[in-house]
């Protein structure tokens, strides 16, 4: 299996951004996104400033722009909705490119597009500089409910195992001359999905037995005692604090 699909986002490195404890980075990204969302959409320059801030962090992390930009494509399906807004929204209309567009719709589309893109960029940057495992530990340190962290950890651990099982089932189908050509083959695919679900469910039961055998009593032992220093928190806070300054300026110049 090699490196699984779960780790494609992460890019190994030793930059100052990589070295920050995960929970400080998560808190910083969350604060940054909230600040961006709180910015008035008419303060167009502010969004440019946010983009510059992110670019500065990206440069500091030494993650290539190409790596970040290709991963930001995940946003595209969500942007489709924003593109529709100028056509369907109500209110005064403006003429552009020979089409009649709604003014409020254009602002709405810009709002969704700008804020969404910045949020995605910040998240991709976090994921590129922090291993998934670290992100989960970070969430745990930020007091995310342990049950949710456990569920996510198990997804991380067993994602590859189940993908592998799915691949073997596909090979077994192909080896016996099956090709999915149309609706008539959906029944087979549905049964495969069902079988995969049952196998995963049974594996869950076996894993639970293995956990009980090693003294599991319903809570994961807290073995992680990493704490962030004041300096680390300060470095992580640089991004959201700068963003907050931009945001306040945005409201002030309105």
């Amino acid at each position: 299996m090699g490196s699984g699909h779960a780790h494609r986002l992460y890019r190994h490195g030793h930059s100052p951004v990589h070295r920050l404890p995960a929970h400080t980075k998560i808190a910083a990204v969350l604060a940054f996104v909230l600040t961006v969302v709180a910015t008035p959409r008419e303060a167009v320059w502010a969004f440019g400033a946010y983009a510059l801030l992110l670019a500065a962090v990206a440069a500091l992390s030494r993650v290539p722009a190409r790596h970040l930009l290709t991963r930001m494509l995940i946003e595209v399906p969500f942007v489709a909705f924003a593109v529709l807004m100028p056509f369907v929204a109500e209110g005064p209309r403006v003429e552009a490119l020979g089409m009649s567009l709604s003014e409020s719709g254009l602002w709405g589309a810009w709002n969704v597009l700008a804020k969404g893109t910045l949020g995605v960029a910040a998240s991709v940057l976090l994921a590129s500089t922090t291993e998934l495992r670290e992100i989960l530990l970070g969430l745990q340190r930020l007091r995310m409910p342990p049950l949710l962290v456990q569920i996510a950890s198990f997804m991380l651990r067993y994602g590859d195992v189940i993908t592998d099982e799915m691949r073997r089932m596909r090979l077994a189908r192909l080896s016996r001359g099956f090709t999915a050509r149309g609706v008539r083959q959906w029944g087979v695919l549905a049964k495969t999905a069902g079988a995969l679900f049952i196998r995963a469910y049974e594996r869950g039961e076996r894993v639970h037995l293995a956990m009980l055998s090693r003294g599991y009593t319903g809570t994961m032992p807290a073995t992680d005692e990493t704490a962030a220093t004041r300096a680390q928190w300060t470095s992580a806070a640089a991004l959201p604090l700068a963003a907050l300054a931009v945001c306040l300026m945005g409201w002030w110049t309105l």
Partner: peptide, 19 residues
């Protein structure tokens, strides 16, 4: 794969004694 359920080998080996 049933026995090793933690994300890293170290955490998995630590699971029992930590409990």
């Amino acid at each position: 794969d049933d026995q090793l359920f933690m994300p890293t080998v170290r955490e998995d080996v630590a699971f029992g004694p930590a409990n």
